[in-house]
Amino acid sequence: MRAYLAAMDDWQPMAIYGLVAGSLAILSWFGDRRRMRRSNPDAVGFMPWTAIFFFSTIVACVTLGLAARDWFTA
């Protein structure tokens, strides 16, 4: 895996990490939406969907921003 990443440009691993974090943000958004619309208010889950959404969105924005900066300056 390390040799594959070494053959990439500098912006490509950051773009991959950003896309993974963005996918996690979308998944956690759906989880939070499902938690908010549950029919049984006593059926509380254990996943902190709001926190996962918030932090994965921040990571996605930062990593995709860094990837775009490296891509445009290359």
Score class of each variant (00 low, 15 high):
Met1Ala: 13
Met1Val: 11
Met1Thr: 10
Ala3His: 06
Ala3Val: 07
Tyr4Gly: 08
Leu5Trp: 02
Leu5Cys: 11
Ala7Leu: 10
Met8Arg: 15
Asp9Gln: 14
Asp10Trp: 14
Asp10Leu: 14
Trp11Val: 01
Trp11Cys: 06
Gln12Pro: 01
Pro13Gln: 04
Pro13Tyr: 00
Pro13Ser: 06
Pro13Cys: 06
Met14Arg: 15
Ala15Val: 04
Ala15Cys: 08
Ile16Lys: 03
Ile16Asn: 04
Ile16Val: 15
Tyr17Glu: 02
Gly18Glu: 02
Gly18Asp: 03
Gly18Arg: 08
Gly18Thr: 05
Leu19Glu: 06
Val20Ala: 13
Val20His: 01
Gly22Lys: 01
Ser23Val: 07
Ser23His: 08
Leu24Phe: 13
Leu24Ala: 13
Ile26Ser: 10
Leu27Val: 13
Leu27His: 05
Leu27Trp: 11
Leu27Pro: 00
Trp29Phe: 15
Gly31Met: 10
Asp32Gly: 15
Arg33Gly: 12
Arg33Ala: 13
Arg34Met: 12
Arg34Ser: 15
Arg35His: 14
Arg35Pro: 00
Arg35Leu: 08
Met36Gln: 10
Met36Leu: 11
Met36Thr: 03
Arg37Pro: 01
Arg37Gln: 12
Arg37Leu: 14
Arg38Ile: 02
Arg38Met: 06
Arg38Leu: 04
Ser39Met: 09
Ser39Trp: 12
Asn40Pro: 01
Pro41Val: 02
Ala43Phe: 08
Ala43His: 12
Ala43Gly: 05
Val44Phe: 13
Gly45Lys: 09
Phe46Gly: 02
Phe46Asp: 04
Met47Phe: 13
Met47Trp: 09
Pro48Asp: 03
Pro48Thr: 04
Trp49Leu: 06
Trp49Asp: 04
Ala51Ser: 10
Ala51Asp: 01
Ala51Ile: 04
Ile52Phe: 07
Ile52Asp: 00
Phe53Arg: 14
Phe53Val: 03
Phe53Ala: 03
Phe53Leu: 15
Phe53Glu: 03
Phe54Gln: 05
Phe55Val: 07
Ser56Phe: 12
Ser56Asp: 00
Thr57Gln: 04
Ile58Glu: 03
Ile58Pro: 05
Val59Lys: 01
Ala60Ser: 14
Cys61Glu: 00
Cys61Leu: 14
Val62Phe: 14
Val62Cys: 05
Gly65Gln: 08
Gly65Pro: 04
Gly65Leu: 09
Leu66Arg: 15
Leu66Val: 09
Leu66Met: 12
Ala67Asp: 04
Ala67Leu: 07
Ala68Phe: 09
Ala68Leu: 15
Asp70Trp: 15
Asp70Ser: 11
Phe72Gly: 00
Phe72His: 07
Thr73Gly: 01
Thr73Glu: 00
Thr73Pro: 00
